[in-house]
């Protein structure tokens, strides 16, 4: 299977740098993961602050099946997440 473009529901924070955001998700086993991504991968990016807002992050879905998906994120890492937080085109 070739990786698909998808959007991952997440929380977004303002980053230390204006060109990026901090995103936060819970992995499949419930652990928190926070990474950084250039702004154009995230929505929405207006009015980000130290408090989280609900948003989404463009990811590459490299594996899915059952109730989970493995996604590669803009920070270069790959994590396993619940499939429920992934929005795939034509899903």
């Amino acid at each position: 299977m070739v990786a698909l473009h998808g959007n991952m529901s997440c929380e977004l924070y303002r980053s230390a740098f204006s060109g990026e955001v901090v995103f936060a998700v819970k992995t499949l086993d419930g652990k928190p993961y926070e990474g950084i991504a250039p702004k154009h991968y995230a929505r929405p990016v207006d009015n980000l602050s130290a408090n989280p807002i609900h948003g989404s992050l463009e990811v590459r879905v490299i594996k899915n099946g059952g109730k989970s998906a493995r996604v590669r994120m803009p920070d270069g890492e790959a994590i396993d997440v619940p499939l429920t937080i992934i929005n795939l085109p034509n899903k």
Binding site: T27, K31, Y33, I62, R70, R72, A78, I79, D80
Partner: peptide, 17 residues
């Protein structure tokens, strides 16, 4: 890059707290 299944280990694979 093809980014096929199986080419990417999860960042949390085997990670403890």
């Amino acid at each position: 890059p093809k980014l096929d299944v199986g080419q990417h280990e999860s960042a949390t694979h085997g990670q403890s707290d």
